[in-house]
Amino acid sequence: MTLLQRTLAIVLVALMGVAFAQFPERTIDYVISFNAGGESDITARLQQPHLEEILGVNVTITNRAGGGGAVAWSESQRSMRPDGYSVIGVNLPHIATQPMERTDTGYETENFEFITWFQFTPNALLVRDDSPFQTLDELIAYAKENPGSVTIGGSGSNTANHIATLQLEQLAGIDLTYVPFTGTGPTVPALLGGHVSALMSYSPMAVLQSDQVRTLAIASAERLSFLPDAPTFVEQGIEIVSGAHRGVAAPPGTPAEIVEALTEAFEEATRRIAEEQEEMGFAIIYVSGDEALELVREVTEEYAAILETLQ
């Protein structure tokens, strides 16, 4: 075939595709805005085979790490085709706080077509198992007497970990020192090596490290089935319910019926891996449709209010 013939053939096939569109009919690109090996990536790779089975097409995972996710998010809003064949993993509160705090972020919080939020990892306050702090109260009492000397490690600045630490300070009337690390990974040796007094981390870490750490409090509304012994902040009188949400979105302008089809597929895939996910410490949720955007707005407002008091 000559190039011309081939081009014509391609154009023809493309036109037919438009006419008889039955989404999906070719490979879907699932972009993850973090490095391979991170929690977002591993969750996506868990979903991948199930998504392929449900949708009947290939699903490839593309890692576009950078800027705490912002590079891929800004690209998705600028240049990704809104045809449903490109979807991108999104994280809260990241997409809410980054545009508030940075210059050149390149995307807007609500400018996604949210497919579904499928995972929630509440904040968890952890200490080493030989720590003198047996309960949250003991930590608070000590911090009251020694302002600033209790160091809390966490993942990043203006993240769920950071904000929860600030909330704890405000609600308990104490003065803590938050030390941000580059991701959850490096926080663990810092805690186990005794370089920080406690960690504000996420629930999977409490499960993964359960034989080396003690969970003083967890920021879910009720106790978690996979961490039955970990008390919540709320039951200890500190009203913190917060954490990070993981979900998936399509670029702005993706047709509603395609988003719905994807919502169904992702919810089904989530259902199939729910058990494994909970064992690893992830709470499973199914927040889709209007609720999905609602959740983004709630989180954005809440964090804006807290960050306001910081300034």
Partner: peptide, 10 residues
């Protein structure tokens, strides 16, 4: 970042 969002990735 000199005004380029892509440079956030360093």
């Amino acid at each position: 970042t000199y005004g380029f969002p892509a440079l956030q990735g360093g």
